[in-house]
Computed example of a mutant assay.
Amino acid sequence: MTNIATLTLNPTLDVAYEVERLYHTRKMRTKSEFYSPGGGGINVARVFVRLGGNARSYYLAGGATGDALDGLLDLHQLVRNRIPIEGHTRVASAVLDLETGKEYRFTPPGPTIKPAEWQACLDQLEHVQCKFLVLSGSLPPGMPGDFYGRVVALMRRRGIPVVLDSSGPGLNGGLGEGGVFLVKPSIGELRQFTGLGLTDPDEIADAAMAIVQSGQAAHVAVTMGHDGALLANSAGQYFLPAAPIEARSAVGAGDSFLSAMLFAITIGWDLSEAFRFGIAAGAAAVIGPGHDLARPSDIQRLYQQVAQIP
Results as ranks from 00 to 15, higher is better:
L164A: 09
G145K: 05
F181G: 06
A94T: 14
S136N: 01
P144A: 05
F106I: 11
G137A: 15
L135H: 01
E177N: 13
G173C: 11
I83K: 01
N172D: 08
I113M: 01
L135P: 04
E126W: 07
V128R: 05
W118I: 08
V134F: 09
R80H: 10
K114E: 13
G62K: 05
V183Y: 02
L96C: 04
A120D: 15
R158K: 15
P144N: 06
S57Q: 02
P109L: 01
V49T: 14
I160A: 06
I85M: 15
E99Y: 06
E126S: 11
A94R: 05
Q124D: 02
D74G: 04
G178M: 02
D146Q: 15
A92Y: 00
D146A: 15
V49C: 05
D146L: 14
G142I: 02
T65F: 03
F147E: 08
V79A: 10
G63T: 11
G110W: 10
S93L: 15
I187K: 09
Y104W: 06
R56I: 04
A68G: 11
G168L: 15
L69P: 03
I83G: 04
P144R: 07
A68N: 12
P115L: 15
V91R: 11
S136Q: 00
P84F: 07
E86G: 10
A64T: 08
E103G: 00
R157S: 04
R50Y: 15
G62Q: 03
L122S: 09
L75K: 12
I85Q: 12
S136H: 10
A64R: 10
L164I: 12
R80P: 02
V47M: 07
Y104A: 09
S167W: 15
P141L: 09
T100M: 00
F106G: 05
P109F: 00
L125C: 09
N54Q: 13
Y59A: 02
M155G: 08
L135Y: 08
C121H: 04
L60D: 08
P140M: 10
R105C: 02
R82C: 01
V95P: 09
V91L: 06
L75M: 10
V79F: 00
L122T: 09
G137W: 11
K102F: 13
W118M: 13
T112A: 07
M155E: 13
S136L: 00
A68Y: 14
I187Q: 06
I83R: 00
D123V: 14
H76K: 07
L164G: 02
A153H: 15
R90Q: 03
P111Q: 03
L96V: 06
E117P: 04
Q124E: 10
G137D: 06
T107N: 03
G174Y: 03
V49R: 12
E86Y: 14
S93C: 13
R82N: 01
P111A: 02
Y148K: 04
Q119I: 15
L60R: 05
V163A: 01
T65Q: 09
E103F: 01
L133W: 15
E103S: 02
T89D: 06
L175P: 02
L73K: 11
L69W: 06
T65N: 14
P169W: 13
L154P: 03
G149M: 11
T65V: 07
A92Q: 01
H76F: 11
L75Y: 11
T107S: 03
A92S: 10
S93H: 15
P144I: 04
